[in-house]
C-alpha cells in the first residue's frame, strides 16, 4: 500500500514570504513580501536562508511559541545538498530531517511529519520549504543575467518560503490521508518542458490514491497539482483520460494559478514553494473547497544526467486535506 490514513494530524497554521514578482501575481494574501531578490543579504543563497528563518521565526512569534516547543524540523529546498535548509537548521537546536523531492518537497514533508505525529513519536512538527528563482536559475540553467531565449513550455521557478505547523490538536486543516508516489520516467529529456516530465507521475499517484482509498474523482472538491504549468496540466488531463479513463474537471494546477499572463513566465510557476504559496494564499482563502487533494510534483532533474542525454525521472506525492474552519 502506498496510501496512509491519518486520524489526528492537523495543520495548525502557516506563514509565507514571497518574492518581488510573486508579490504582483495572482496571490494576494501572503504574510510578507520581499522588495528584491537579495532580502538585505550579500548573496542569493544567504537571502534564501534568511527567508526560511524569517517564516519560521514569524510563525513562532505569532503563536508566542519557542522552537523548543517543537519535536522536529523537517524540510528541504532545491539547492545542491539542500544546503539552504541545512544551513537554516543550524539556527534551531532541535532534531532535523532534511528531505529532497525537488518540487514535491512540500508534500513529502507533510507525509513524514504526519506519520511521526500519527505514530505518537512527536507532538508538534515544524515544516519548511523554499525556492528562490535566481538560485535555481544559477544551479539548473544559466547565470542569472544571461539571456537565453526560452521556449513556451519552460516554467519559472517561484520565489518564496513557507513554514507549516503540524500538531495533534485540532487546527485549521486536517491531514486526512496521503499517497507516496513512485518514480516514473517516460522518456522526456527536455529540461525546458518539465510539465511533460512530471505529468505521468502525477497521474500515477492520483490513480493509486483513488484505487487504494476506494474513491472516485467526485469525492474531492478540488484536485490541485504542484507545478506542471499550464501546458503540463493540459498534458495531465489528456494523459489521465487516455491512460486511466479519468476525466479531470474540478482540477487546478498551482503553477498555472500563480502568475499573471502579463508576467512573461511562459508555462507558469514552479519550484517547491509554488504549491504551498497557491494553496495557502489563494485556494484556502477562497473558502470554496472543503476536501482538497494536493499532488506535489517533482522533476528529479540533474544537470549532469541531462547533459549525458538521460531522460528525466519524476515523482509525485499526494496529500488529502480537509478544511475545518
Amino acid at each position: 500500500m502506498a496510501s496512509i490514513k491519518f486520524k489526528n494530524v492537523y495543520i495548525k497554521d502557516y506563514y509565507s514570504i514571497v518574492g518581488p514578482i510573486e508579490k504582483e501575481s495572482q496571490i494576494k494574501n501572503y504574510d510578507l513580501a520581499m522588495d528584491d531578490y537579495y532580502f538585505k543579504e550579500k548573496t542569493f543563497e544567504l537571502a534564501e536562508i534568511k527567508m526560511q528563518q524569517t517564516v519560521i521565526d514569524n510563525l513562532l512569534a505569532r503563536h508566542k511559541m519557542q522552537i523548543s516547543d517543537f519535536d522536529i524540523l523537517i524540510g528541504g529546498d532545491l539547492s545542491n545538498q539542500i544546503s539552504i535548509t541545512n544551513y537554516n537548521a543550524v539556527n534551531y537546536n532541535i532534531p532535523f530531517l532534511g528531505i529532497y523531492a525537488a518540487c514535491a518537497t512540500f508534500c513529502e514533508s507533510l507525509i513524514v511529519g504526519a506519520n511521526l505525529i500519527e505514530s505518537n513519536s512527536c507532538q508538534k512538527a515544524m515544516l519548511i520549504t523554499s525556492s528562490h528563482n535566481l538560485n535555481a536559475e544559477k544551479q539548473f540553467r544559466y547565470p542569472v543575467e544571461y539571456g537565453a531565449p526560452k521556449p513556451h513550455t519552460a516554467t519559472f521557478t517561484s520565489t518564496g518560503a513557507i513554514s507549516t505547523m503540524l500538531t495533534k490538536n485540532q487546527g485549521k486543516i486536517k491531514i486526512e490521508s496521503a499517497t507516496i508516489g513512485r518514480v516514473i520516467e517516460l522518456g522526456i529529456k527536455d529540461a525546458n518542458n518539465l510539465g511533460a516530465v512530471m505529468a505521468p507521475a502525477a497521474a500515477a499517484t492520483l490513480q493509486t490514491h483513488l484505487v487504494e482509498m476506494k474513491r472516485d474523482l467526485n469525492y474531492y472538491d478540488l484536485i490541485l497539482t504542484g507545478d506542471l504549468g499550464c501546458i503540463g496540466s493540459n498534458i495531465l488531463k489528456e494523459f489521465c483520460a487516455t491512460t486511466y479513463n479519468l476525466k479531470l474537471k474540478k482540477y487546478l494546477d498551482a503553477g498555472c494559478e500563480l502568475f499573471l499572463k502579463s508576467q512573461d513566465t511562459f508555462s507558469g510557476g514552479s519550484g517547491p514553494a509554488c504549491l504551498p504559496l497557491v494553496l495557502y494564499n489563494k485556494i484556502l482563502k477562497q473558502k470554496k473547497y472543503r476536501k482538497i487533494l494536493i499532488i506535489a510534483t517533482g522533476a528529479l532533474h540533474s544537470v549532469a544526467m541531462v547533459n549525458q542525454k538521460q531522460s528525466i525521472p519524476a515523482i509525485a506525492h499526494a496529500v488529502s486535506l480537509e478544511v475545518l474552519s
Binding site: T153, L186, I188, P200, I231, I235
Partner: peptide, 9 residues
C-alpha cells in the same frame, strides 16, 4: 507519450 506531449506543447 512523446507524441501526446508534442501534440499539446
Amino acid at each position: 507519450y512523446k507524441k501526446l506531449v508534442k501534440k499539446i506543447s
